Simulated assay, not measured.
Amino acid sequence: MAILIILIFLSALLALLLYLGIVHINNPSKAKYPVNGVDVSAYQGQVDWDTLSSQDIDFAYIKATEGSTFKDSCFEYNWKEAGETDLRIGAYHFFSFESSGEKQAANFIDSVDVIPMMLPPVIDVEYYGKYQNEDDIDVVEIRAELRNMINILKEESGVNPVLYVSEETYNTIVAQEFSDCDIWYRSVYGKIDGELDWTFWQYSNRHRLNGYEGEEPFIDMNVFYGTKEEFESYGTQI
């Protein structure tokens, strides 16, 4: 009975530490993945980029837009301030299943000022709200609109956008259809399948760093699949 009580206590303690972001399920090898970065949105508030950038990170992706009209309230500030640090930065767009790819591309292009050495644009493809799985969408139509947005952003920036995906959206929407785009894969509860070809890996959504005080206490952490030298030239056609 004493052993059982101890095991229950230790399990509860581990769960609490995971919830509080003190310990983490994934801890990618720094030697294997030397390039680390964050992604932020208005949920982190107006970031103190001097403080954030000093914490062993190399890049930051910043939410710019969503759908055909929404603009992140902190993007303009974050884009300007982050651009004055040594970080490489990029902007991302949350893809809507209710707007055309053309209008969504226009919203992103209108919102993001091009700067030297910026990272390729990212299109975040996730299920959300009333769209919880492939049964809730017309997959063929969504793929067509996503392709339209990809083509427009490629023409505008000179590089293919990166597609941010969950396991669900990768398997049901993206896999086998968009091999021309690099993949940013979300896997916060385990490692990525060794057969999957990825460029960025979001390995945690419960990290805590200094430099932000928004309503979200945690920050997403990511790694780049490559060396620091490879990262320096990644997407530099922009």
Results as ranks from 00 to 15, higher is better:
Met1Ala: 13
Ala2Asp: 12
Ile3Ser: 13
Leu4Asn: 12
Ile5Ala: 14
Ile6Trp: 10
Ser11Trp: 13
Ser11Gln: 08
Leu13Pro: 01
Ala15His: 06
Ala15Arg: 07
Leu17Tyr: 10
Leu17Ser: 09
Tyr19Phe: 14
Ile22Ser: 10
Ile22Lys: 11
Ile25Met: 03
Asn26Pro: 10
Asn27Ser: 15
Pro28Thr: 00
Ser29Met: 08
Ala31Ile: 06
Pro34Cys: 03
Val38Ala: 03
Val38Asp: 01
Tyr43Thr: 01
Gln44Glu: 13
Gly45Ile: 05
Gly45Glu: 08
Gly45Met: 07
Gln46Lys: 15
Asp48Pro: 09
Asp50Lys: 15
Leu52His: 07
Ser54Phe: 05
Asp56Trp: 07
Ile57Ser: 04
Asp58Gln: 09
Tyr61Asp: 03
Tyr61Thr: 03
Ile62Asn: 14
Glu66Arg: 05
Gly67His: 10
Thr69Val: 13
Lys71Asp: 03
Phe75Gly: 01
Glu76Ala: 14
Ala82Gly: 08
Glu84Arg: 15
Arg88Gly: 06
Ile89Glu: 09
Ile89Asn: 08
Ile89Tyr: 08
Ala91Phe: 02
Tyr92Gly: 00
His93Ser: 04
His93Cys: 05
Phe95Gly: 01
Glu98Met: 11
Ser99Glu: 12
Gly101Lys: 06
Lys103Glu: 15
Asn107Met: 08
Asn107Cys: 13
Asn107Pro: 05
Ile109Leu: 11
Ile109Asp: 11
Ile109Ser: 11
Ile115Lys: 15
Met118Ser: 09
Met118Asp: 09
Val122Asn: 05
Val122Cys: 04
Val125Cys: 02
Val125Gly: 01
Gly129Phe: 03
Lys130Ile: 04
Asp135Glu: 14
Asp138Val: 06
Asp138Leu: 06
Val139Gly: 02
Val139Leu: 04
Val140Pro: 07
Glu141Asn: 12
Ile142Asn: 05
Arg143Phe: 02
Ala144Phe: 03
Ala144Ile: 00
Glu145Phe: 12
Met149Glu: 12
Asn151Gln: 13
Ser157Gly: 02
Pro161His: 11
Leu163Trp: 10
Tyr164Pro: 06
Ser166Ile: 01
Glu168Cys: 00
Thr169Ala: 10
Thr169Asp: 13
Thr172Asn: 13
Ala175Val: 10
Phe178Leu: 00
Asp180Trp: 03
Asp180Thr: 03
Trp184Gly: 01
Tyr185Arg: 09
Arg186Asp: 05
Arg186Ala: 14
Val188Ile: 15
Tyr189Glu: 14
Gly190Val: 01
Asp193Glu: 13
Gly194Ala: 08
Gly194Thr: 11
Glu195Gly: 13
Asp197Val: 04
Trp198Gly: 03
Thr199Pro: 11
Thr199Met: 12
Thr199Gly: 04
Phe200Thr: 00
Phe200Arg: 05
Phe200Gln: 04
Trp201Arg: 06
Trp201Asn: 07
Tyr203Pro: 05
Asn205Asp: 15
Arg206Gly: 03
Leu209Met: 15
Met221Lys: 07
Val223Tyr: 08
Phe224Val: 01
Phe224Asp: 06
Tyr225Trp: 07
Lys228Ile: 01
Glu229Cys: 01
Glu232Pro: 04
Gly235Thr: 03
Gln237Ala: 15
Gln237Val: 08
Ile238Trp: 14
Ile238Gln: 14
